[in-house]
Write a protein that binds this DNA or RNA. Structure first.
Lengths: 192, 192
DNA sequence: GTTAGCATGTAAGGAGTTACATGATTTT
DNA sequence: AAAATCATGTAACTCCTTACATGCTAAC
């Protein structure tokens, strides 16, 4: 029954939350959410949309394009059940949510994520990165004999990248702590 | 016949270039080369070793462990044909060599890579990253209306990470240009 | 004595890409 | 008139992970 990645489901549902879209446009917007790198292929996107439709989370419908004589596009729209499922996904804050593959997507929908969940994800991410720092240090210590200039450069650059992300997370976390949680749901138009 | 990833072949051959190793130890060292993140599973490593052995690039042999009463380990060793194949792989400088998946591995073996190839890979990598910067700028420009605080933070952090890598590459490139190519092969113990 | 680390493998499956197939519309 | 971009999909394949299967040795 093809259990597919929750991350992609979340990304698609989250984008359709704002407005109905057709596949082609969805793919472009996914690039923003998934990171401008790693563009998703149609071979992944369309089967995913089919799946979401089968689950009753989105509906497919052919658009009539008023003025323009464009090809009829298939427009996907979030259902009520889809909104509920999105909320369920967004409420999760387990280890999977702070790994590389999902952390970016989770952050992209933070405006619709409860404040406590946001904090747990940010802190989980930070301790994940700190584990990596330890692993790199250990690795550097072990292989310091056979490392040449280039290997050292690579390790050094990797280390600094992780340290930068930790500092960034620290800022996000302290901002999260200093902003008292809004009584009910956080406003989607929360100011910078 | 299971065409497998050149990147992994390169990484394994490169590590065995230094000294014969058994699978378990190889896997740990691969972590250094492939990035301390993304550790490789045995389900990938052992079939890969089998493949390299079938191609005649490495040999498998049971080690007798002198003193210790350890379990007999299978030690893999590079053959002459394997060294040739490694050199062929290392001479490549096509677009594949500067993508995310392979760039780190290529850099890890720069000490055994000809100087012109090193330069082509570094410059290829840099222009790849500059394409990304353009893509991000375009994406930011397109979506600046619907972006909330978190999406902006994410894009900003991503942008700065790429810019940092470009600056790092600039340093590596200028160092590469200012260091006259050694007459023959570069010394493997090249000083920092 | 039991947990952690050492050590080698296989089978099944997941998540995705590439290549293919098709055709309309817009820009150069 | 050609090339780029819009638009939707499928089939085959790739690379890798997870879970399983097995057993030894070192440390707590």
């Amino acid at each position: 029954m093809a259990r597919r990645s929750d991350v992609l489901d979340l990304a698609v549902l989250g984008l359709l939350h704002d407005s109905p879209l057709h596949g082609y446009e969805l793919r472009k917007r996914l690039a923003t959410v998934l990171g401008p790198f790693r563009a998703l292929s149609y071979g992944t996107l369309y089967p995913c949309l089919k799946h979401l439709s089968d689950q009753g989370w989105i509906t497919e419908s052919a658009s009539e394009q008023a003025a323009t004589g464009r090809r009829a596009r298939i427009v996907y729209e979030l259902t009520a059940a889809g909104k509920e499922h999105f909320d369920d996904l967004v409420d999760e804050s387990g280890p999977a949510s702070w790994e590389d593959e999902s952390f970016g997507v989770r952050l992209a929908f933070f405006a619709r994520t409860p404040s406590e969940v946001r904090l747990r994800i940010l802190e989980g991410r930070r301790s994940r990165l700190e584990e990596r720092l330890d692993a790199v240090s250990a690795s550097v210590a072990r292989g310091r004999e056979r490392a040449d200039r280039y290997t050292l450069e690579l390790q050094q650059h990797g280390l600094e990248s992780v340290q930068r992300e930790v500092r960034w997370l620290n800022e996000l976390i302290s901002h999260e702590r200093n902003t008292p949680p809004s009584p009910s749901a956080p406003s989607p138009t929360e100011a910078l």
